[in-house]
Amino acid sequence: MSENILEVNNLKKYFPITKGKEKGLSVKAVDDISFSIKRGETLALVGESGSGKSTTAYNVIGMYSATAGQIIFKDEPISNNIKERPLRLRKEIQMVFQDPGTTLNPRRIVKDILSLPLKIHKLVDKKDPVGQIVRLLEEVELPMEYLFKTPLALGGGERQMLAVARALSTNPDLIVLDEPTSALDVSIQAKIINMLLRLQKDYDLSYLFITLDLSLVRNFATRVAIMYLGKIAEIAPTEIFFSDPEHPYTKMLLSAIPVISEKEEEVKHAKVTPKGEIPSPVNVPKGCSFNTRCPLAFDRCFVEDPVMKEVASDHQVRCHLVEERRQS
């Protein structure tokens, strides 16, 4: 068995437009991306809204059928047609969504919510079904008094913990976390993140962590992938990502992290001023998709789309500038 638990190769997901002026075109939500996740590691997928990070997650979890490309889970290609996905995979890959208020049925009590995945996958402990659920609650630090409460009676953070417990219930190998903390208070964010880190160790979990928040990534992820307009701009181990970023877009994002003191400001990289907004994924700019906003763009960027190049072990960048600098 290879060390990669998940491999995504040349994944594409286009949404055809069926109405209006742009009929016949399609939204290139995810356009030819490749990455992998090793067993026990966390890959953070970072990008602005509309960059295709959630679409990628939905493809992995099986909510969307991919347009092209391959997803390999534990050395086994997962069918791109989500209807043909076996039940076993629904057990081994789980998901935690952004807003726990909508992912938990407000009319069902905690006990029913947690026993559903166990029943579906025939994992119910027949001798002690209630104890099994109480242990799950304990695992996410929720009291057993919550068994008969509905999610409406729980706070936002507690709901998210419940969602984590549900994901954990089938003993999965990979959990896709789609901005699990962005709907929560900062104080609760830390609690959830610490809990996720502990669970990762205890259960040997791998995470695909989708987020907008770079400061969270630093403490949580093993590796970081930056997405821009459906493509990955740079993948690097977290440490290198923050200390030695190569792609202008990464530099731009990092210099946008707010800091408080002058001292911190000095430590930061040379400022790359962001300009403009992310273009529409329907009309992707010719050449490198970042050329409309890149302060360092030169003539080649407007003609030719760069490809992923390995600059160091485990560190890949998709930029002409980096490529040319290496050649010279």
Partner: peptide, 12 residues
């Protein structure tokens, strides 16, 4: 709604 999607994803 996501709670329906979640149930679908679990294989209900």
């Amino acid at each position: 709604e996501l709670f329906v999607k979640s149930a679908e994803l679990l294989g209900a």
